[in-house]
């Protein structure tokens, strides 16, 4: 105990000093993202972040004339990491919810989302009978909450990331995957093309996706909102949108 407390004290002092150093060079905005949510944010084999969120973030940074740095963080720890100042903003397709609003502030939404089921092509699964079987979701997402609230009898399996949920859909461990329309669409266009298809209409819509920032960091929120309006106006947003989706993702 004596040694360890000294050590941890010394370490936190070191970390403290380090972050003081970085605080002085504070023009840099550190952006937290997940890197496991294609096509919004994903990692390539050589460790590069790609995706809609990333391109939007880059466009925003360019507009704000700020230097940006990306930090990847697992979904279940992404809000605590923001609160702990590991980064300054979360651009990771995060929906605005009341629970999250108690912990963080949100900017204006940068796209609109809806939930939809995906299942193997030969399955007769539909949104109204999905609750009889195993539903795969990502833990801590609105899909997970929606599935639990609306399908109380379903065997809801929650995965640390979206990719694992799809992998187990293909493996047949779950009978359907409930997730955001955008990610499901992209997956059906690529890896899931052979096996699966949309089942039924979207089950919930009008989730607003926004950038999360630390509570009270209104200056940064203002900067993001101004930049977002600017890239909406100058066509940069439409360009990024077209790169990933043939439809308008922003919503009204």
């Amino acid at each position: 105990m004596p040694m360890l407390s000294k050590v941890s004290l010394a370490l936190s002092a070191a970390a403290f000093a380090l972050s003081l150093g970085s605080a002085q060079a504070q023009d840099k905005i550190r952006i937290g993202t997940e890197g496991a949510y294609p096509p919004f944010n994903a990692l390539t084999a050589d460790g590069q972040l790609v995706g809609f969120d990333i391109d939007i973030a880059r466009a925003l940074c360019e507009e704000m004339k700020a230097e940006c740095e990306f930090v990847t963080q697992d979904w279940d720890g992404i809000i605590p990491a923001l609160q702990a100042s590991r980064f300054d903003a979360i651009i990771a397709s995060m929906s605005i919810t009341d629970e999250r609003k108690q912990q963080v502030d949100f900017t204006d939404p940068y796209y609109t989302n809806s939930l939809v089921f995906v299942a193997p092509k030969d399955s007769d699964l539909m949104p109204d009978n999905a609750g009889d079987k195993a539903i795969g979701v990502q833990e801590g997402t609105i899909a997970a909450i929606f599935a639990e609230e609306n399908y109380p009898n379903a065997d809801v399996k929650a995965y640390p990331s979206q990719l694992e949920a799809w992998a187990d859909l293909q493996n047949g461990r779950v009978d359907s995957v409930l997730a955001d329309f955008g990610v499901q669409y992209d997956w059906l266009e690529t890896d899931g093309k052979e096996c699966c298809e949309f089942k039924g209409d979207v089950v919930s819509s009008d989730d607003k996706i926004a950038i999360a920032i630390r509570k009270g960091d209104t200056a940064l929120a203002e900067k993001f909102n101004t930049a977002l309006a600017a890239i909406r106006a100058n066509g940069k947003y439409a360009e990024v949108n077209a790169k990933y989706f043939p439809f308008d993702i922003f919503g009204e």
Partner: peptide, 24 residues
Amino acid sequence: FYGAQLGVQQLASFLGIETAIEIN
């Protein structure tokens, strides 16, 4: 990872230090 971070953060705000403290 989460707790020490929160603890240090609260201690810092209690002492009135305005800075980002991170334990990576």
